[in-house]
């Protein structure tokens, strides 16, 4: 079983990101579960969401304390909270940042840290700083836990009612992050 913990702030689409990973994994033929940390959702407050991926149906419902993958949507979070709590030497980190990974206050092996400037990509494509789908392109590339095709199908499914324009932009964003 793979356990993924996503850190971000209220309003950044953290829960949607966890759901998209679950749908993408399911589209790839796996079982998946996603859930938020159930905080009182206030815009700007640090929040967490979780996704589990497994071949079997997932029964366990405890929060994710020891993630295999850490996704950090908000570049300012590592400075204010211990995002790496419960991580180990194998935990991979996908972080949205414009900084060099050497300059990040994350106490994990540099070889496991993958950076992507998802904010820049999102600003280019959407004209606003919504990096939640964008960063998943990097997640797909750097972890291989979901395929780019599965992620595209998940976006098509999730944003069906939002129309073709939104879907196309999101797909463009994940492709750009995938090839970052």
């Amino acid at each position: 079983m793979y356990q993924i913990r996503i850190h971000g702030r209220g309003g950044q689409g953290v829960v949607t990101a966890s759901e998209l990973i679950a749908i993408a994994a399911f589209e790839d033929g796996m079982n998946a579960q996603a859930f938020p940390s159930f905080g009182v959702e206030r815009t700007g407050a640090p929040i967490e969401a979780y996704t589990r991926i497994d071949k079997k149906f997932i029964r366990i419902r405890e929060h994710i304390y020891n993630p295999d993958i850490l996704i950090i949507l908000d570049p300012t979070l590592p400075e204010v909270t211990d995002v790496a709590h419960g991580c180990n030497l194998k935990t991979k980190v996908i972080i949205n940042t414009s900084k060099n990974k050497k300059d990040l206050p994350i106490d994990l092996p540099l070889s496991n840290i993958y950076t992507v400037d998802a904010t820049k990509i999102a600003l280019e494509i959407f004209g606003k700083n919504i990096a939640n789908t964008t960063i998943l392109g990097a997640f797909a590339k750097d972890t291989k836990m979901i395929s780019l095709e599965g992620l595209k199908r998940a976006i098509n499914q999730k944003f069906k009612k939002k129309g073709k324009n939104i879907i196309d932009k999101n797909i463009k964003a994940i492709e750009k992050a995938y090839n970052f």
Binding site: S18, F26, A32, Q33, F35, P36
Partner: peptide
């Protein structure tokens, strides 16, 4: 509440 109402699964 939340554990089932707000979670995603198959």
């Amino acid at each position: 509440g939340f554990i089932l109402t707000h979670s995603y699964e198959k």
